[in-house]
Design a binder for these strands. Structure first.
Lengths: 193, 193, 193, 193
DNA sequence: TATGAATGAGGATTCATTCAT
DNA sequence: AATGAATGAATCCTCATTCAT
């Protein structure tokens, strides 16, 4: 029962942020979207802030799943990097309410320490995953810079797609592939020296 | 008088978003930060939303100035591209309240048509600037893709620097330069064919 | 079963008033203190107000027992008066939760007719007991005044001890004895005339 | 303006406690009784609790005024003691809303440290006033006991009058006078020794 | 032009009560 | 007999907005 209600409420919270925006995602609206009474949020989460924190955790977990699932099937360094890129560009990450929620959490994280911590952990995992994959074919310094660059490119491509409303994921993937072509081409050469 | 007050209030609004967050930047706090009464906001802007819209316009104008100033001095295509990158990475763009305000506006823009319009115009100008500069040395299609890629990289690098709190601008610039090196190297070759 | 549950819940109600105050003694807290579910209160009492009324009745019954027990053993008028005083100053009447509950009921009685009725009955019994005992040695008018005075002294001494948190019962008893000394000294003289 | 509003709101708070009881004296009811909007309470007092604390302070100040005014005119120890008694039995202290508010504060003080402090100060002032006056004619120990006794009698008589709803102030005064007659008769004799 | 007192709608939260199990 | 999940009305409080000065 508890698991069901928490799921319902988290989904409703993300949907409400998507529909109304973070500041206008009220307890009233979220509970109505979940088809339950307003009091239930406090029963299961203790309060609105905790529900929103749980919602951010849920977004992060979903992204982690998308990446981890693809990563598990990858065998070469290049495939691992592509898995990370594709995980970040999975359809679930472009669902409009999800996009709105991500943006809201990035903004809120600046003033909510708990959200900031989640966001920091997420960012570090992405960087660490990328660096690890690049390290297989690049020298440490080059791997670090390539990781930072690809992380930025992933976020930037996602952001532009998210902000523009166009889900031109194919072009984003092509640009990321191109980035990989060059980093791995150069890097492989460098490492061979 | 009006110009002075509007300036004061816009600065106070950005500062308040930086200090308290978008949702907690109240009329009371903004007016106190500006050293004026709370009623004055409605006198000069008509309401809180209009002040916030004016503040976003102000951020955009400042960014435009940073880019345009550098662009005016650039003579080669490469210099133009670097001018755009450096304008976007100007110190003013990493001032913490400004960072917070940018993030807030990106988030809010999803639900405030007026803000969305401003953001769209800004994004198009960036893309158009980049495409124009790339077109001098790349074929149209390649120029478009390079522009999209660099725009994403700029936003992503800015975002990561902004979210991590570290203002490691030099690394960001190095990564962007590296991107340019490669696009222009390839591109020049392609165009020469 | 019913008797056991009612006892548990009344004790828990008084304990909760003692710990949290009247307004903060919620059904949730009371039932948790009793180690039962929240629904049980309505099952056995019909509602929160009825439980609180039963709790006040319980306090009154306990006070009555303290007085009646001592009164049964008293043989002289003076002993009867002392029995009443000592019953009112029994240790059970200074148990902090009981003190808090008494104060709360005095306050609530002004707006809850049922509680007001209980309190009125209690006050009349005290006065009647005192008057009856004084009548054995004082003229009717003097007995009535002595009874009113001693009733006030008892309440006032209890109240001051209760409010100050010090359970200086011995001093209170000494003062009451002193009052009796004088009333009975005078009174006896008057009656003898 | 501020002084006027605070006065209005304190009066309305006491009236509302009198009419509805402490727990039911809501911000809504208090502000309506004051003829102002509900938000104004937070504007002038910061919150409901602060208004209620200010109301208790007001009750205490009024009592202090009643006593101090009479005390200033008293020249003999006996007159001083009567001034204190009469101050505590002034008509203002039997106004029904005031009675209800006093009872409520006594009850609430057990769980609100700020109210507890006010109540403690008040009790100490009463005791100190009485002890000082008794000291002029009684030995220190006897004066202390007489003070405690009279303080209790005052509170008890007030309480019984308050609880019974009868404002039989004359009988209360007569009983207090009688107490004084005896304490001072004995005491004077003792001191003369 | 500028103030800040005042409003009252709307927010999160609490809680007595109900009821299916 | 007993549970505790669920409800929704009522609470305090916040805040953008208005307006007399």
């Amino acid at each position: 029962m508890e698991a069901i209600r928490r799921r319902q409420l988290i989904d409703a919270a993300i949907a409400s942020i998507g529909r109304y925006g973070y500041g206008e995602a009220t307890v009233q609206r979220i509970s109505r979207a979940a088809g339950v009474s307003s009091g239930i949020i406090h029963h299961y989460f203790g309060g609105k802030d905790e529900l929103l924190e749980a919602s951010m955790r849920d977004l992060l977990a979903e992204l982690r799943r998308e990446v981890a699932g693809r990563l598990a099937k990858a065998t070469t360094p290049r495939a691992r990097l592509e898995a990370i890129v594709e995980g970040n560009f999975a359809p679930s990450q472009f669902d409009p309410p999800v996009v709105a929620a991500w943006l809201a959490f990035w903004s809120e994280a600046r003033h909510a320490p708990k959200l900031a911590r989640l966001q920091r952990i997420n960012h570090r995992r992405l960087l660490s995953n990328l660096r690890h994959a690049f390290s297989a074919v690049l020298a440490p310094e080059a791997a670090a810079q390539a990781a930072t660059g690809l992380a930025a490119l992933i976020d930037g491509l996602w952001l532009n797609a998210a902000l523009s409303g166009e889900r031109n994921i194919d072009e984003a993937l092509a640009i990321a592939q191109r980035f990989l072509d060059r980093e791995l081409g150069d890097g492989a050469a460098m490492k061979r020296q």
